[in-house]
Simulated assay, not measured.
Amino acid sequence: MKRLWTPAWIARHVAMVVLVVGFLALGWWQISRAASGNTLSWAYAVEWPIFAGFVVFVWWREVRHTLRGPAATAPEAATGAGGTPDPAVRGVRRPVRVTRVPVAADTTDDADLTEYNRYLTWLNANPGARPGDYPG
């Protein structure tokens, strides 16, 4: 629980309270405007409390994430039985098997086009790979 009382978290708590109170006050102000005849204000009267609810939702999600702590992101939590990577754990990538593809001789004089075609050939030969995995 001490993790939620650091200076950064105190600022987050204060920001959450200020935003929620402000959004609810704006919603109340829109209700008073709508009651005086401004029909568009009825939509805003509903919208501001939804914004306040969203702020509470994000704050609560961040509190839960902080209280879970680093155990959920530790390397030993990312492995399953036998030390194999568990794909159910977020952030764990399966290894990509890279296949070397020989490039046919290209008759074009454009070096950039040749390199781009080599890159596309490699991507086609390695369907599970990401563009950042390209060895060239």
Rank of each mutant, 00 (worst) to 15 (best):
G22L: 06
F23Q: 08
L26M: 10
L26Q: 05
L26P: 00
W28T: 10
W28M: 12
W29H: 12
Q30N: 12
A34C: 01
A35V: 14
S36A: 09
S36T: 09
G37L: 02
N38L: 14
T39R: 13
T39A: 11
L40T: 09
W42R: 07
A43I: 13
V46G: 09
V46W: 10
V46M: 12
V46D: 10
E47A: 13
P49H: 13
A52K: 05
G53H: 01
V55S: 03
V55M: 09
V56F: 04
F57I: 15
F57Y: 12
V58W: 11
W59D: 08
W59T: 03
W59I: 00
W60T: 14
V63M: 13
V63L: 07
R64E: 10
R64F: 08
R64Q: 12
H65C: 05
H65Q: 15
H65S: 11
H65L: 15
T66R: 10
T66L: 12
T66H: 12
L67E: 05
A71K: 11
T73A: 14
A74Q: 00
P75H: 03
P75M: 03
P75D: 06
E76I: 05
E76G: 01
E76S: 10
A77M: 06
A77F: 06
A77C: 08
A78L: 10
A78C: 12
A81M: 07
A81T: 13
A81N: 11
G82C: 02
G83Y: 06
T84M: 13
D86M: 02
R90A: 15
R90Y: 08
R90E: 05
V92A: 00
R93E: 07
V96A: 10
V96C: 06
V96Y: 04
V98P: 03
T99F: 01
T99R: 06
R100C: 00
V101M: 03
